[in-house]
Design a protein around this nucleic acid. Structure first.
Lengths: 181, 181
DNA sequence: CCTCCACAATCTCATTGATACGGTCTCGGT
DNA sequence: ACCGAGACCGTATCAATGAGATTGTGGAGG
């Protein structure tokens, strides 16, 4: 059995938390919550559970009916693997891919006005994300103790994060040429 | 000619700025500066210039000698493509892949102590990055006007960014259970 | 002259990403 | 009851990618 990749733990975790699921529902849950720190293209959400089932970490239960949906359940082995993963503070390096920072990096090769346009665009974009995170946090369900805590925490990080972006790009849009914020 | 991907503009930009280069030197420059916002596995830095040369955006010049190094030069078409790209404020969505945030997201499925260990680890990690960015900014060469500006700006963003991470993880390590920083 | 290590490029191969395609269910209208 | 439309759901396809092993070169020191 190959050591599962990080993506695998996303599906393991989602199923462990919310109960048996089809790949399509996984897709919805990933888009909802996981996307900002670990995007997964939807086709993967059909391939990964298949592999996990072959490794015994999930159990597949075919639904009847023309739309042959496949419902996946966690096995004890799956839960154990998940806990092992959570207990290990290591993992692959964090990665960011931001085309805007790239354009800023190469700004000396282009027109100075390009930077201003870029900054305006990015400021708007990150303001929108900041807003959606704030709203989500406001709408958190206060029942369900453990869930609330972990949800509030990552939203907090998202907000901190987007605030840094907004500050940076807004400042750049309004005071280009100023080197220290 | 296929529309070039983002990675292509990284090599185009680096060669346009620093002059003709071999893939190996590209690798070094990417590791130096681009990695934090657009990582590229080194093998790509051999494949991409080949393709760009086929598209006429680079020109290949084989070096003599047993070590058949290939030096790539920008063409006018290459420079034009680069400027067009820089002038367009759009681009693909920003993406982040952070295993630590993922573990935090699933924290409700594991032992509460795991979070503290994770937070400590991450705080240390991001403190180190914060330090290296600060040092780099201190060591910036004040000659070379345009270069300095764009370099200082992205370092600034990196610092803002890492500071947000450090604040978050440090706080979490010391006051787990506290929901608003 | 030989050895060792950093330098440099390429190869391989399973995995991925992107996306088109093929079904199926539901619901409103007739 | 029948139909059409659009959302829902799953799979197939295929080139591109990522990881990392492998091959080879040049130079410095013994």
């Amino acid at each position: 059995m190959e050591e599962p990749g990080v993506q695998a733990y996303v599906v393991l975790g989602l199923i462990a938390r919310h109960g048996p699921m089809t790949p399509y529902e996984l897709k919805a849950r990933v888009e909802e919550g996981v996307e900002p720190f670990w995007p997964i293209p939807h086709a993967q959400l059909y391939r990964i559970p298949t592999r996990l089932a072959a490794d015994g970490l999930l159990r597949e239960e075919a639904e009847e009916g023309g739309r042959r949906r496949r419902v996946f359940h966690v096995t004890d082995a799956g839960r154990a693997a998940l806990r092992r993963w959570l207990a290990d503070p290591g993992g692959p390096r964090i990665e960011t891919r931001d085309p805007a920072q790239l354009k800023l990096f190469f700004a000396d090769l282009g027109d100075p006005d390009d930077v201003v346009a870029l900054a305006r665009e990015q400021a708007a974009l990150h303001r929108r994300w900041l807003e959606t995170y704030r709203e989500r946090r406001a709408r958190l369900d206060p029942s369900d103790e453990a869930r609330l805590t972990s949800r509030a925490r990552i939203l907090k990080l998202g907000i901190l994060h987007e605030r840094a972006y907004v500050d940076f790009w807004e400042h750049l849009a309004e005071h280009p040429g100023d080197l220290d914020l």
